[in-house]
Design a protein around this nucleic acid. Structure first.
Lengths: 190, 190
DNA sequence: TTGACAAACTAGCAATGCTAGAATAATTAT
DNA sequence: ATAATTATTCTAGCATTGCTAGTTTGTCAA
């Protein structure tokens, strides 16, 4: 009988509607506007229904963040052009990373600032969470013995640039120079 | 008459007690536990009194953060030893910065993550906010033409390392290696 | 038709930031 | 000294939040 299949499918669709609504509201009005009540209204179910899909609000944020990690990974991979030099690839990935952070601040916030209940560096860590790191490692590896440590450091620099600029601590006008500086340092080529 | 002097003095003392209480509770139980009700209870006044000192909760966080910026600046300056080489100074400042971030996570959160209502890069920006940057600029300047941009980038790298490690995204055991890598890149000396 | 189970809803709790309006204390004017 | 005024502080409560207990509604097998 396909009844239970239909039910699980409908459940899945409802869950997606929750995540999509959360993302949409967050991108338009910020995460503070993503309340359980508002999401419930959006999907046209009562509030407790949300808790049959997610343990709590943080996990809804986490579901959106997971999407974000997948998209970031794709964007970073797409930024790596075969025709580019190794140094250009570093610069392109850095630029793509920061563009992502500034174009989708709510998504970036979900991924890196808000509590999400996501588990990193575990055996059950979803592929999306490792993928972005992999893309960065690809462009960093040619310049380093210890690619993991170098990638962590590169990633940290990008994340710091994103956060400090987002909070108005560093000058937006000099973003390109900072990227150039990092690229130069990583590649060792002026 | 010293009556009004006494009053303003007592008001100032009460304000300090609010800030101290906020900091103490945050460092022990996290910022979520720093509620207006709890602060009011701590200083033994009713809640509305807090709003005669601060516009809202964010500004209380901001007052604590301002203290933190002063302390961070002092710590960074103290980390610069005259006997050290330029390269060692970079490493020492980086280490001191991260030690600060990990030893006082609540304070660091107030300074860099939570909304505080603090204004940066303005004419009325308090000295504390500029001072830490100045300390970093001191050790970066010898290696750079454009000290400001280089310092911003250095700072971003440190901030990124602090945040990613705090959120469990990078391996804590490799902190020293990452610092060494940054130092090496900044100084250009392996 | 009935009984058992699943799904969804109503209603409400406890906690939050913040504030209007009343009450009290202190100061000034008469 | 007393009354009027001003400054301080408090009580009480609003609106909103995440979350949940308990009830109702719907579904399916016996």
């Amino acid at each position: 009988m396909g009844i239970s299949e239909r039910k699980t499918r409908e459940r899945g669709e409802r869950e997606r509607r929750i995540v999509v609504a959360a993302r949409t509201i967050a991108e338009r009005d910020g995460w503070a506007s993503v309340t359980i009540r508002r999401l419930a209204e959006e999907i046209e179910y009562s509030q407790p229904v949300l808790y049959s899909h997610f343990e709590n609000r943080d996990q809804i944020v986490g579901a959106v963040a997971l999407e974000g990690f997948g998209e970031l990974a794709a964007i970073l991979r797409a930024a790596i052009r075969p025709s580019s030099t190794s140094k250009e690839r570093v610069e392109d990935v850095a630029t793509a990373y920061l563009d992502f952070a500034f174009d989708r601040p709510a998504m970036y916030e979900a991924m890196f600032v808000l509590p999400t209940g996501l588990r990193f560096a575990r055996s059950d860590t979803p592929a999306q969470l490792r993928d972005g790191f992999g893309a960065m490692a690809t462009v960093i590896a040619p310049f380093s013995q210890d690619a993991d440590t170098a990638t962590e450091t590169f990633w940290a620099a990008l994340h710091g640039l994103a956060e400090l600029e987002r909070h108005g601590r560093i000058r937006p006008a000099f973003r390109a120079q900072r990227i150039a500086l990092i690229t130069q340092m990583v590649s060792g080529q002026p």
